[in-house]
């Protein structure tokens, strides 16, 4: 039985079948990977491009990033706070879903784009306090409609930054001060410790 199968595989038809199977499996895998890199479907096509282009600060709608772990996604009341004063809100067909949702008293259920798994405990506050700007990790929001991740957010990516920023020659600027060097060493220990994020 098995011998017969191998004989069939070695025949021209069998070889073609094997090639087709391998190719379809590969394309399925590629499609799966592609799907994970797509920004998710959102309730409305919120244009980050336009809002950030108008000069609205990231922290106006995502204020939690300054203080705690989660930056928060704005409720419809925050949208309405500005939009009720804009004449276009009532006329534009693109803004109709928001007006309808506001009149119906229901909010939007935003789908978070930049997410970490349950076993990772990420906090925005120290990152903002360390002088990182939002676009360092989240990309330039003046270029995208729906937020998307400019890179795969995995542990290697986190650690690369943690390591490079605690190196003595960070930005080609070696420290000659032993105290600063020891401080960086302590910082690196903390920032590469498993228990800092996983608990």
């Amino acid at each position: 039985m098995i011998r017969k199968f191998f004989e069939w595989v070695l025949s021209p038809m069998g070889r073609i079948a094997v090639v087709i199977t391998v190719m379809s499996l590969f394309s399925l895998a590629a499609y799966g990977v592609y799907q994970t890199q797509q920004p998710p479907e959102q309730p409305i096509q919120f244009t980050h491009k336009l809002h950030v282009g108008l000069g609205i600060q990231c922290l106006y709608c995502h204020p939690g990033a300054l203080r705690g772990p989660s930056p928060g996604l704005p409720t419809i009341n925050k949208c309405w706070g500005c939009h009720q004063q804009i004449a276009k809100t009532q006329t534009s067909p693109l803004l109709k879903p928001m007006v309808d949702a506001m009149n119906a008293g229901v909010g939007f259920t935003w789908v978070p784009v930049a997410q970490v798994p349950d076993f990772v405990h990420f906090t925005h506050r120290p990152h903002v306090a360390a002088g990182l700007n939002c676009e360092n990790c989240h990309g330039d929001m003046t270029k995208v409609t729906i937020a998307e991740n400019p890179q795969v957010m995995n542990m290697g990516w986190c650690l690369n930054c943690h390591k490079s920023r605690t190196e003595d020659n960070f930005q080609n600027n070696p420290t000659s001060d032993a105290g600063v060097s020891a401080q960086l060493e302590k910082k690196r220990t903390k920032l590469t410790d498993c228990g800092t994020c996983h608990y």
Binding site: P117, F119, V120, T189, K190, D193, C194, G195, T196, H198, Y199
Partner: peptide, 16 residues
Amino acid sequence: TPHSPAEDLNLQVYNR
């Protein structure tokens, strides 16, 4: 289950 150098605790890394 490494030893945390920063906090000096025994850690359990669930994802690992």
